[in-house]
Design a protein around this nucleic acid. Structure first.
Length: 821
RNA sequence: GCCGGGGUGGCGAAAUCGGUAAACGCAGGGGACUUAAAAUCCCCCGGGCUUCGGCCCUUGUGGGUUCAACUCCCACCCCCGGCACCA
C-alpha cells in the first residue's frame, strides 16, 4: 500500500470550526418566520439550570447531552427540532451566595450567565440562542407577574394567614415541601412555626385532575408514582361528633368509618379552633401549657414519628355517633392541623398511633374488627390494622360484615342519620408562593385600605425589582423590600388613594413553572404567549430532567398549564407529553461534592479530549436513566473510538485512490444493518450506552485485520454517531464530499431487514440444561435438522450415549435441549 | 417505617416476553510492526481442575417453580434516592 500522510484528528480545531459555522449559518437558531412555519415539529426540552458562580457541572452536562442526543437524533430523522435553554437565576441560592461574597445578585448573575453561555456553547448542544430566557430579566418576569395576575383574577390566588415554616437561620419562610425532615432544605437548621399572611395558589382545586391526567402521560413509572403519592388521595368519610353540652360538633376525617364503634376517645390538634370550646375549667391550665409548648416546639420534634406520644385531656366529651357513648376529648401534637379536619376519632384497636397513645394514657381499647381465627373477645396485643381481611365485631347490627362492606354500610347509615358523609381527602397542600426575600419578582399587588389587594394593571408591568444594596433578611420576618419606602409607597390603581405595594417576592418554582411556554414566544414583548406559535410548538414532546424535580416542579408546571388552559391562554392542559428522568453521575464510586473536592470540572477535560469525546463518554458510562460512575481512565475508550473512526473515514475514504466506490463486504453490510436496527431503537428509548457499544462493535468489524473501509460502510456510521459527537461528524461528513450540515441534509440510515439477516446461526446444544456444545445451522432450521446437527457434535453425542432421550426442547435459532433420563 | 431504584469479573457495565452469563469499554498480560515511542493490528484476561478433548463452580443470601432462572415466586441481607404521626 502506498504511504499517505495521515490527517490527524484535532478535536479543538474541529470543534471551534463547527461551532463557528453553526453560529454563522444559524444552524440551530429559529427565526420568527421559521417558528411560524415549521412542520413536523419536535420540542426537545431540558430542565434549565441555575447559573451558579462555579459554572456548569457534569450533572448539567450529562443531562443536557442526553437531551441533546435525542434532539439531534430526531432532527436526523427529519423533525424540525426546537431545543432551547435558559437560566433559572432567581432564588435563595443566588441571594445567599451574593450575601456571602458581598456581590450584588444584579452584578453576579449576568457574569454567571455569560460564563454558562460560554460553557454551554462549548459542549456542542443544539441550543437556539435566539430563544433563551433568564428569569431575572424584567422582560421575562413581567410575564411571570402577568401569570400571577391571571390566577389572581381567576380566584386561584388567595391571601391567607397560615402557620408557616420559619427558618431562623435563613430568616425566611419555607414551603412545606422545602422542609426536609423538619429541617431547612438549604441550611439544615431546624424549622420553627410562625403565622404570616401569604399568597397561595389553589392547586388543591385541581388535585383530582392532576391525578387523573397521569394515566395518559408517557412518563417514567417512578415519576408517575411519586406524583400520585404526593397528591395523596384517600377515600373515607367525614363524621360528626357532637360536643357534649354544646351546639357545635367536631368533624373528623377517617378512612376507616367501619371502626367507628371502636372510637373510644377524640384528639384535636393543639391549634384546633374548638380546643377552647371543649376545654373545661379543670382542664384549662394543662391545655394552655400544652398548647404553648406545642407552638414553641419546632416542626422537627413536632413531626418525629418515633417520638413518644404526648397530650392532655381537655376535660370535655363528645358523643360517639355510633355507640352514643360519651368519649373524652384530648389534644395531642400527633394530630396535625393541616391534614383533614385537624381532629380525629381515635380507634386504638385498629390504628397504631392511637394504640400507642391509648396505652400511654390508659384509655380504653376496644376490638371492632376480628382477623382470621379471632372473635370479638380476642385480646388486642397490638393494633389490628388490616383493612381488607377481617370481620366487624362489637359493632351492633354491623357485626359479621367484612371490612370493605362495613365501610360502605356504616357510611350509608351515618349519612342517612345526618352524622357524616362520604369524603375524599388529598395530602397535597395549596402552594405558598410568597417569599419574604429580595431576589425574586415582586408580587404585582397593591394593598389599598379601601379596595384591599388590587392587582397592578397589566400595562404597568413589570413591577421592577429595585436595586437595593442592603437586602439582608432580618429577624423581623418582613421582606427586605418593606424597608424601601420610596419603592413600596404608591397609589391605588383603583381609587388613587395612598397605597402600599406588596413587598414579598414570589417563589422560584413560579418562574420555572412556565418557562417552557415562553421559549417559543420570546420574539414578542407585547404578549406572554403568542397563540399561533404556542399552538404550533406545544406541548413539549420530550422533557428530560432530574428526578429530584419529580414532584414539585413537574406538579406546579402541570397546575399552571391546567389553569392557563382553563383561562383560554393555551389549548392543552398537560405540558409535557413525555418525561424521562436521568440518573446521577458519581465519581470513582463516590458522590461528588465541593467539600470532598472530587467534582469533575468540564473545561480541562474538553481541552484535553474535546467535547465530542466528553459527550460520548458521559453517554457511554452507564444507562442514561440510572447515571453511572465517572472514572478518569474510562474516557480513553470513547476517545480511541472517535480517533479510529476519524482515521477510518478521513484517511481511508477521502483520498482519490480509496475504495469508496466499492461494494460493501456482505459480512460487514450485515453487521451494519444489525447496528442500524439497534442504534435506531435505542436512541428512541434513550438507551445510549448500548447504542454506543453497538457502534464500537461495528467499527471494530469494519477495521478488523486492518482492512480498508468502503464509503458505504462508514457513511451511515458517521450519521449515527452524529448525535453523540456532532462536531467530528460534521467534519467527516464534509470530508466525504457533502456541502451542507449533516443535521440539515443527512438522512438517518435505513434499516434493511433482509440485509441484516444471518444465513447461519450458532445453536446452543444442551443436555439436561447444561451446555455441551454449539453447532452452526442454517437460520430457521427446523427441529429435525437442528437435532441431526446436534447429535453429530462429538461432545453432545458423548453425553447422549447410553441414555434415553425423553424430550427435546427446540427454540429455533437459539437452543436445543435434550432431556435424558 | 413506607415508596422507588439497585446488588453480575480487578473496574464501568451487557443480557430480564426464562433459552450459550459477562457484549462494549477501562485497567492488566503477551505478540506483530517500529531505530524507539505513540498509533494500529492479533491473542489472553471470573474461579478451580484438566489426560488440553473437556469437566465442575459462579449473577447479594437461603429456599421454590421449570427441561432450562441474572430474569419468575417466597423469605432475608446490604447500598442509593425520595417521603415520613396524612387519621
Amino acid at each position: 500500500m502506498e504511504e499517505r500522510a495521515r490527517i490527524p484528528y484535532s478535536p479543538s480545531d474541529v470543534e471551534t470550526k463547527w461551532q463557528r459555522i453553526w453560529e454563522d449559518r444559524g444552524t440551530n437558531a429559529f427565526t420568527l418566520e421559521e417558528l411560524r412555519s415549521a412542520g413536523n415539529r419536535y420540542y426537545q426540552l431540558m430542565m434549565f439550570p441555575y447559573p451558579s458562580a462555579e459554572g456548569l457541572h457534569v450533572g448539567n452536562i450529562y443531562a443536557f447531552t442526553g437531551a441533546d442526543v435525542h434532539g439531534r437524533y430526531r432532527r436526523l430523522l427529519g423533525h424540525t427540532v426546537f431545543e432551547p435553554i435558559g437560566f433559572d437565576a432567581f432564588g435563595i441560592h443566588s441571594e445567599n451566595f451574593a450575601l456571602k461574597q458581598g456581590i450584588h445578585p444584579m452584578d453576579l448573575i449576568p457574569s454567571n450567565v455569560a460564563n454558562f453561555t460560554r460553557q454551554l456553547r462549548r459542549i456542542g448542544g443544539m441550543f437556539d440562542w435566539n430563544h433563551t430566557v433568564d428569569t431575572t430579566d424584567p422582560k421575562y418576569y413581567a410575564w411571570t407577574q402577568w401569570l400571577f395576575i391571571q390566577l389572581f383574577n381567576a380566584g386561584l390566588a388567595e391571601r391567607k394567614e397560615a402557620p408557616v415554616n420559619w427558618c431562623p437561620s435563613c430568616m425566611t419562610v419555607l414551603a412545606n415541601e422545602q422542609v426536609i425532615g423538619g429541617r431547612c432544605e438549604r441550611c439544615d437548621t431546624p424549622v420553627e412555626q410562625r403565622r404570616i399572611a401569604q399568597w397561595f395558589f389553589k392547586i388543591t382545586d385541581y388535585a383530582q385532575r392532576l391525578l387523573d391526567n397521569l394515566d395518559h402521560l408517557d412518563w417514567s413509572d417512578s415519576t408517575l408514582k411519586a406524583q400520585r403519592n404526593w397528591i395523596g388521595r384517600s377515600e373515607g368519610a367525614e363524621l360528626h361528633f357532637p360536643i357534649v353540652g354544646r351546639e357545635e360538633r367536631v368533624e373528623v376525617f377517617t378512612t376507616r368509618p367501619d371502626t367507628v364503634f371502636g372510637a373510644t376517645y377524640m384528639v384535636l390538634a393543639p391549634e384546633h379552633p374548638f380546643v377552647d370550646l371543649v376545654t373545661t375549667d379543670e382542664g384549662r391550665e394543662a391545655v394552655e401549657a400544652y398548647r404553648t409548648e406545642a407552638q414553641r416546639s419546632d416542626l422537627v420534634t413536632r413531626q418525629k414519628a418515633d417520638k413518644t406520644k404526648s397530650g392532655v385531656f381537655t376535660g370535655g366529651y363528645c358523643r360517639n355517633p355510633a355507640t352514643g357513648d360519651n368519649i373524652p376529648v384530648w389534644i395531642a401534637d400527633y394530630v396535625l392541623m393541616d391534614y383533614g379536619t385537624g381532629a380525629i376519632m381515635a380507634v386504638p384497636g385498629h390504628d397504631e398511633r392511637d394504640f400507642e397513645f391509648a396505652t400511654a394514657f390508659d384509655l380504653p381499647i376496644v376490638r371492632v374488627v376480628a382477623g382470621p381465627g379471632e372473635d370479638g373477645g380476642t385480646p388486642l396485643l397490638e393494633a389490628y390494622v388490616d383493612n381488607q381481611a377481617g370481620t366487624m365485631v362489637n359493632s351492633g347490627r354491623f357485626d359479621g360484615l367484612g371490612v370493605p362492606e362495613g365501610k360502605t354500610a356504616i357510611t350509608d347509615w351515618l349519612e342517612a342519620e345526618g352524622l357524616g358523609k362520604r369524603q375524599i381527602n388529598y395530602r397535597i397542600h395549596d402552594w405558598c408562593i410568597s417569599r419574604q426575600r429580595y431576589w425574586g419578582p415582586p408580587i404585582p399587588i397593591v394593598h389599598c385600605e379601601a379596595c384591599g389587594p388590587v392587582p397592578v394593571p397589566e400595562d404597568q408591568l413589570p413591577v421592577v425589582l429595585p436595586r437595593v444594596e442592603d437586602f439582608r433578611p432580618d429577624d423581623s420576618g418582613i421582606s427586605p423590600l418593606a424597608r424601601v419606602e420610596e419603592w413600596y409607597k404608591t397609589s391605588c390603581p383603583e381609587c388613587g388613594a395612598d397605597a402600599r405595594r406588596e413587598t414579598d417576592v414570589s417563589d422560584t418554582f413560579l418562574d420555572s413553572g412556565w418557562y417552557f411556554l415562553r421559549y417559543p414566544s420570546t420574539d414578542f414583548d407585547d404578549r406572554a404567549l403568542d397563540p399561533e406559535i404556542t399552538q404550533r410548538w406545544l406541548p413539549v414532546d420530550c422533557y428530560i430532567g432530574g428526578n429530584e424535580h419529580a414532584v414539585l416542579h413537574l406538579l406546579y408546571s402541570r397546575f399552571l398549564t391546567m389553569a392557563l388552559a382553563e383561562l383560554g391562554h393555551v389549548d392543552f392542559e398537560e405540558p409535557y407529553d413525555r418525561f424521562r428522568a436521568h440518573g446521577l453521575i458519581i465519581r470513582e464510586g463516590a458522590k461528588m461534592s465541593k467539600s470532598k473536592g472530587n467534582v469533575v470540572i468540564p473545561d480541562p477535560i474538553i481541552e484535553e479530549y474535546g467535547a465530542d469525546t466528553f459527550r460520548t463518554y458521559l453517554m457511554f458510562l452507564g444507562p442514561f436513566g440510572e447515571g453511572g460512575d465517572y472514572r478518569e481512565a474510562g474516557i480513553q475508550g470513547p476517545y480511541g473510538f472517535l480517533h479510529r473512526l476519524w482515521d477510518t473515514v478521513v484517511n481511508s475514504a477521502s483520498g482519490e485512490d480509496h475504495p469508496s466506490g466499492s461494494v460493501a463486504d456482505p459480512d460487514v453490510e450485515r453487521k451494519l444493518h444489525q447496528t442500524i436496527a439497534q442504534v435506531t431503537g435505542q436512541l428512541a428509548d434513550l438507551q445510549y450506552n448500548t447504542a454506543i457499544a453497538a457502534m464500537m462493535e461495528y467499527l471494530n468489524a469494519v477495521r478488523a485485520g486492518g482492512r480498508e473501509a468502503a464509503r458505504a460502510e462508514v457513511e451511515p456510521l458517521v450519521v449515527m454517531v452524529a448525535p453523540f459527537a456532532p462536531h467530528i461528524a460534521e467534519e467527516m461528513w464534509e470530508r466525504l464530499g457533502n456541502e451542507s450540515s449533516i443535521f440539515d441534509h443527512a438522512e438517518w440510515p435505513a434499516y434493511d431487514e433482509d440485509k441484516a439477516r444471518e444465513s447461519d446461526v450458532q445453536l446452543a446444544v444442551q443436555v439436561n440444561g447444561k451446555l455441551r456444545g454449539t453447532v452452526s445451522v442454517p437460520a430457521g432450521a427446523d427441529q429435525q435438522r437442528a437435532e441431526a446437527a446436534a447429535r453429530a457434535e462429538p461432545n453432545v453425542a458423548r453425553f447422549l450415549d447410553g441414555s434415553q432421550v425423553r424430550r427435546v426442547i427446540h427454540v429455533p435459532d437459539r437452543l436445543l435441549n435434550f432431556v435424558v433420563g
